[in-house]
Design a protein around this nucleic acid. Structure first.
Lengths: 194, 194
DNA sequence: TATGTAAAAATGAACGTTCATTCTTTTTTT
DNA sequence: AAAAAAAGAATGAACGTTCATTTTTACATA
């Protein structure tokens, strides 16, 4: 195998192990030794790929966040009408939270704890721009409520994180019917009422 | 001072220190020695009040959760019409998240990490019943969408956690205008559209 | 293709530190 | 003066990181 590919594989294995272990135990209860073992690597090897534990988790966060937004905007097209565009993005995000559950759980934990450096956090937000642009257009067209992006995100996107966690804990099953209800609630909360 | 009161004070100091330190550093990055120091107590003394570190954080969680729901339902009356009752509870919860920021941050972190025992987590949910009852009544009267409690909570209550965290991070200011907008979004997302 | 070799990558053991918890002693209360 | 509460120092385990060494890779030469 090519040297480069082997390096990439090893880095990916480390990132994947970090996600799984941090999901189950939290950042500080996840020792480097366990990450190494799960990635089939010596603890010392981690330090060839990452500066230290904080760097490993920061980079993992940025990686996953990039995957998330790439997934979210896959079929998005800026020419779509606002409502259609929003529905498309919303459903892709919902898909991500349900199918890429491990990744989504990791992000939820990062976003609600002091686990990630502020710099990496800001790096992670960057790629959300297409959604913010869509909302700007929607407000101009009088379709979206004239509210802050934070409020729009809080009401239309963030609830999916709560539902995902509830689902992971087993207390709740987010099936196709629920998903449609959830979408309607999301849209209701941000659209201008006629 | 009475012996009992002194004990209560000491326990409260420990709980308060735990909240502050865990908010800033996370559970595992908060040593017992620091908790002790902040509460003006010897590390060994903690073990007179709590079994171990896990017990301390579990009990802190249950304490704060109880405070949260007590605050939320303070002026609530089951005879209120559904919409009025919801508005009252929602605004009390919003108040809590903004004024009792430390407490609310702590709950957010607990609810999104594997920090708390499952048993304590379930103990914490118990006191939310009045809101669930209100929703049941609302659904019967055709005022509230016929959706799962989880969905109703995700859309009408949980967004406040996101907004609180954004506000704490300084990226966003949740003032009176925003609060009214937020309430309208919350209500829009769960009310039946006429 | 086979071989030798220098550099790079990877390793396991070791180090120094930190932490939760306990033990023994001291202080406070009754 | 006995009992209860609190203290600080001690203990042993676990952790992040580094170090000395081994293994693998890349490649020049034959």
């Amino acid at each position: 195998m090519a040297k480069l590919q082997k390096s990439i594989d090893k880095r990916n294995a480390l990132v994947k192990a970090t996600i799984e272990l941090v999901n189950n135990n939290g950042f500080h209860a996840t020792p480097m030794s366990k990450i190494a073992k799960m990635a089939n690597v010596s603890p010392a090897t981690i330090y060839l790929y990452f500066e230290n534990k904080q760097d490993l988790v920061n980079q993992t966060y940025i990686d996953v966040k990039a995957e998330y937004t790439k997934y979210a905007f896959k079929d998005f097209d800026t020419n779509l009408p606002v409502e259609k565009g929003f529905e498309l993005i919303w459903k892709r995000i919902a898909d991500f939270k349900l199918k890429e559950c491990e990744n989504a759980m990791f992000l939820a934990q990062c976003d609600n704890t002091p686990m990630i450096d502020e710099l990496s956090r800001q790096q992670g937000i960057k790629h959300l721009q297409p959604l913010l642009d869509l909302w700007t257009r929607g407000r101009k067209e009088g379709i979206i409520k004239p509210m802050s992006d934070y409020l729009l995100y809080a009401y239309s996107i963030n609830p999916l994180s709560f539902l995902m966690i509830a689902q992971k804990r087993g207390s709740f099953q987010l099936d196709v019917t629920h998903l449609e209800e959830a979408y309607q609630s999301a849209w209701s909360s941000i659209k201008v009422c006629k």
